[in-house]
Amino acid sequence: MDALLHQIFSGIASGGIYAGLALALVMIYQSTGHINFAQGEMAMFSTYIAWELIDYGTPYWGAFFLTIVFAFAAGVAIERLVIRPFHNLPVIALIIVFIGLLVVVNSTASWIFGTTLKTFPSPFPSEPLWNNHYISNHELGSIGVVLIIVAILFVFFRYTTLGLAMRAVAENPISSRLVGIRVSWMLALGWGLAAAIGAVSGMLVAPILYLDSSMMGGVLIYSLAGAILGGLDNPWGAAVGGFIIGIMENVLGAYVIGTQLKFSVALIVIVVVLLLRPAGLFGRTVVTRV
């Protein structure tokens, strides 16, 4: 029983991480209908920036927010320079471009920052709360950060004009132009936000997995599974999906299929969800009357 609780808690903890990257994926999917396969690598790269900043002596939270700003700017720049020229090309070309981007970011990171594993600090105290042995403070803190991001996104999309405009562009670009929204900037903004959220998730992963250019590979797969499970067009759905995947990965890995086949969990979830409920558990069903 205790062991099971253990698995569930560590599942929730890794779920928080998947939820973070899943949110980033949803940002771009919502506004463009594309899945950015390079999202994890971009997050990893930003985490290296944070590491460098901390290494220069920047206090943790200073580095944290500077990195978010960097990631946002980089996201906007990538959209405008790399993705924009392809917006009229077929999906397959874009998938290839995403893969090219993945490769470029990944190898640039190992080129600039080297290939040795780096330890990354956690901003949370190391003594576990109430001396519990189920969940560390870093894990608790990560979950908290993810929940805060979800809350911010909720408010942003529901109540701010900018958030409304981003949703509008996702739904109907032509009508959006007709009310004066600059569609292309909204797409770039979506990329910026996604990159910023991804950077946060990278900085939360790094203390657990150690910083390394392949750090986000597995995380991306689970996050994709989580985003699909929860619904690619729904931020909090994707976050919940991330948590569910985390728990499934740990519990199923420990008791059912063995840790060696953990990735299969992601595979099975992706295929089953796509087949049975392509909109995901919490995906919005748009009703249109003609």
Partner: peptide, 9 residues
């Protein structure tokens, strides 16, 4: 034409 409303909103 076709009204162009944002159906999901």
């Amino acid at each position: 034409d076709g009204r162009g409303t944002f159906a999901a909103m």
